[in-house]
């Protein structure tokens, strides 16, 4: 899933300062699952904003609304009938959803309430951890299913670097060394010979470095 973190209340208050009537827009996809911008978090933020305004003797009108997805026009269309009643939209979707809401309503002020951080997994309830950087050319078959691009601080392909100690990355003692994981995995699978191969220089053109990416399935297109 895409994982994000809500911005601080202080930052959001600054963003909504000029507005008295806002649409607070959550998303039921990944950002709900990572407990950052679903219906519940929309409720909490709305309540916090109202309390903050009341404290200053002011007021704010907030419509709380959570879409199935903010990354699909069919769902975003649901806010069309009433979006104009609000001075601004505060989106609690991931960056993709925030962009798309803004794309669909180019005249509307769309403000981000989420800092989108990574594509990852929930390793235990309340804990999320990065797994993929969307580089566009997967090599997990070479590395025992552990991604050096996303999980090595230096994204090196022929690791580990000299900073791996006791299975931990030199950058952060709470982070596993991806290359230790790769070697352990390959060993467990009896495939340590994979490690012997030098992984060739990567073609980054399929990653973000090649420019913004688009995927098209002609067979699914309507026109």
């Amino acid at each position: 899933m895409i994982v994000g973190n809500r911005k601080s209340l202080e930052e959001i208050l600054e963003l909504v300062k000029p507005y008295k009537k806002i649409l607070l827009l959550g998303c039921r996809e990944c950002i709900t699952v990572c407990a950052a911008g679903g219906e519940r978090e929309v409720g909490v933020l709305a309540s916090e904003l109202k309390i903050a305004r009341k404290k200053e003797g002011g007021d704010i009108e907030i419509k709380e609304f959570t879409l199935e997805r903010q990354c699909d026009v069919e769902y975003i269309d649901q806010i069309k009938p009433f979006i104009d009643e609000y001075e601004a939209v505060v989106s609690m979707a991931c960056g993709a959803g925030i962009n798309y809401t803004a794309d669909c309503f180019p005249k509307k002020i769309v403000l981000p309430a989420i800092n989108t951080t990574f594509m990852g997994v929930s390793t235990e309830q309340g804990v999320w951890s990065e797994r993929c950087q969307g580089c566009g050319e997967c090599i997990l078959h070479l590395t025992g299913g552990v991604c050096p691009v996303a999980r090595c601080a230096k994204s090196i392909f022929n690791g580990p670097c000299g900073g791996s100690a006791n299975g931990v990355c030199e950058v952060n003692k709470d982070t596993d060394c991806a290359w230790q994981l790769i070697i352990d995995r390959l060993k467990g699978q009896g495939k340590l010979e994979n490690y012997e191969k030098i992984i060739d220089i990567k073609d980054w053109s399929s990653a973000r470095d090649g420019g913004p990416r688009t995927r098209i399935r002609e067979d699914l297109r309507l026109n």
Binding site: S8, L9, E10, V44, E48, I51, A52, K55
Partner: peptide, 8 residues
């Protein structure tokens, strides 16, 4: 924590 953030 939320209250702290709100200055309450």
């Amino acid at each position: 924590q939320l209250l702290q953030e709100l200055g309450i």
